[in-house]
Amino acid sequence: MNGIAGTTEKVKKERWWTRLRGSSRREEEQVMPPFRVLVQKEIADQVRSWQFIILIAIIALTTMGSLYTALSNIRDAIKPDDPTSSYIFLKLFTLSDGTMPSFLVFISFLGPLLGIALGFDAINSEQNRGTLSRLLAQPIHRDYIINAKFVASLTVIAVMFFSLGLLVTGIGILATGIAPTPEEFARILLFIFVSVLYVALWLNMSVWLSVKFRQPAASALTGMAVWIFFSVFYPMIVNLIIKGMSPPSWTVNPAYELFLNKLKLTLMRLAPNYLFSEATSTLLMPSVRSLGPLTMEQLSGAIPGPLPLGQSLLLIWPHITAFIALTVIFFVLAYVPFMRREIRAR
């Protein structure tokens, strides 16, 4: 996945270089491979589409809001005996005084919406406009169409998130006068990378829905329903199950309590948004040492201190694997029926 994104980044870089050297005239006379032509068009379409403009406006505004609250509260957040105080910079992404959620929360909330917005009409709108059969009559392989759509949307998301994250970093440096340490910077980049992966997962789900449903409205609504289910209703259902299984409060059974705790965590982790919040908070809050319940014996003798980057990464490696796996599964689900389907005019 990130290989594809990587090559398009490289391609873009090369193109940028040829422009800089003033050879755009030569480019006009060059033959561009059809796949690149498709990707170029898809990117242009996405960036100009209304849903993208509206979402980027919402995301930019919320970023500004959360950055403002973080900056105005960062002074109180630093305590003299806090072992994580060397990671002040990361607090820009996670700090909130309760009036406004942090950048992290906003991304985990709006990311899926962005993914759904970029993908929900990918295939079905082409078919409804009658452009799909015309496109298929051109000398390109059929999977170029769906691949180009995926690569283009992913590029748009990656460019957007990286510029947003780096913008926050830059404003943070200007406002606080503190420069991030290399480790902090690496953590920020990784956080953005995980966010892009997370949005790619939702993007592929909505591309799949766009193959499945003929009406863009149906696929958009289904995508949103899944999103709302996981972010609102799923935690409720899990709480309900756990509460039903809880013993009366006067009994003492530590083993059963531990089991319940673990069960709750396992159930919650089935939701991609929970996985995302675990992964990103581990990255942005180095003090997070474990993602499961810890017993007193495990904690005894532990020195409170931040985890090094390598250890934090180790902690969230399964999460990243899950994101990639889910993304691939949704891609296959979209890809196979699209390749097999007989495409008729409208």
Partner: peptide, 26 residues
Amino acid sequence: PEDVGFYERYSGLENLVFTGRLNGLP
């Protein structure tokens, strides 16, 4: 195809140029 469709936000010329480039024309 029957009842052919074009990208409505592009001009007729842009639609043709896109097809041309998909067919390997610079």
